[in-house]
């Protein structure tokens, strides 16, 4: 196992990305404890102040006098949670769906992948609005609506990978040895999918975070007074000229998270894709 991580010590960008992610997550969890303010607490005395040390408003406050340091970190927590959870959902559905379709081949594969195509062709924002209207606005709805679409690409990637694995000699050897299908899938197919799947998952997380930000920006995602990077940026955009810090803080965190995940994903891909030696 130690050998597996050896590359990581050499890949500077990936290492920096992972360190950055860990620090952001730690800050998002522990940071608010250091601040005297709560997420929805209003400070009537200081409305729309710029970042500074005064009254511990390190990132300043918004138009209602809420502390932006605490709100931004709360937004980071929501974004990371949504990113990870929605990716996990898409991972579970996508890998199962794609692996079964790809391994079965033939008509079953055709039928299963047509279902994916149908989902793909739905207009996404319309779909989310529909879900929000029927299920009501809540973080749960957001997970469902992002996860419901996020697995499609994963299913396609996994299906194609499984199909090429199915024709590998070691899979044929397993079939010829009389191993049951379930064992072949679990023991031979899934572990060999781990590389591409893991890489694709790290690339999905930033995508999901961006979708969440976009939906919240449109007012379809996380709702006031809860904070997410998306609705913080939406408010920040409105006050861009008079209070640029309201936009800058959430933007900086979003960019840092997306970049860091990108580096980690690239590192994993470089390491795993050309056959681990």
């Amino acid at each position: 196992m130690r050998r597996r991580w050896h590359w990581f010590e050499r890949d500077l960008a990936a290492r920096a990305g992972l360190v950055a992610l860990a620090s952001i997550a730690l800050l998002a969890l522990a940071g608010p404890l250091a601040s005297p303010w709560r997420v929805d607490e209003l400070d009537w005395a200081r409305i729309g102040v710029a970042p500074g040390l005064e009254a511990a408003h390190w990132f300043g406050t918004d138009r209602l006098g809420r502390d932006l340091f605490v709100r931004t970190l709360a937004g980071v927590r929501v974004s990371l949670a949504i990113g990870l959870l929605a990716t996990l959902v898409s991972l579970l559905i996508g890998v199962a769906w794609g692996a079964i379709a790809g391994y079965a081949g033939g008509r079953l594969e055709g039928a299963m992948m047509r279902v994916v195509d149908v989902f793909y062709s739905l207009p996404y924002v319309f779909f989310v609005i529909l879900l929000t209207v029927t299920l009501g606005r809540s973080p749960a709805t957001l997970f469902i609506s992002i996860g419901a679409v996020g697995w499609l690409t994963m299913a396609r990637v996994v299906c194609a990978q499984t199909e090429s694995l199915r024709h590998k000699e070691f899979i044929e050897a397993a079939v010829a040895a009389g191993l049951p299908v379930r064992r072949i899938l679990v023991r031979h197919v899934l572990p060999n999918l781990a590389g591409p799947v893991l890489v694709y998952a790290t690339l999905t997380v930033p995508g999901v975070i961006l979708i969440e930000s976009f939906l919240s920006f449109l007012g379809l995602g996380v709702q006031e007074p809860a904070a997410s990077l998306g609705n913080l940026m939406a408010q920040g955009t409105a006050e861009m000229e008079s209070a640029p810090w309201m936009l800058l803080a959430p933007c900086a965190f979003l960019v840092a998270i997306v970049l860091a995940l990108g580096f980690v994903g690239d590192g994993l891909r470089d390491h795993l894709d050309p056959r681990e030696r």
Binding site: K168, E169, F170, A173, N192, R275, E276
Partner: peptide, 11 residues
């Protein structure tokens, strides 16, 4: 099989 390396699961 023909290709001894490919016929073994690398993992």
């Amino acid at each position: 099989f023909q290709d001894p390396v490919a016929s073994l699961d690398p993992r």
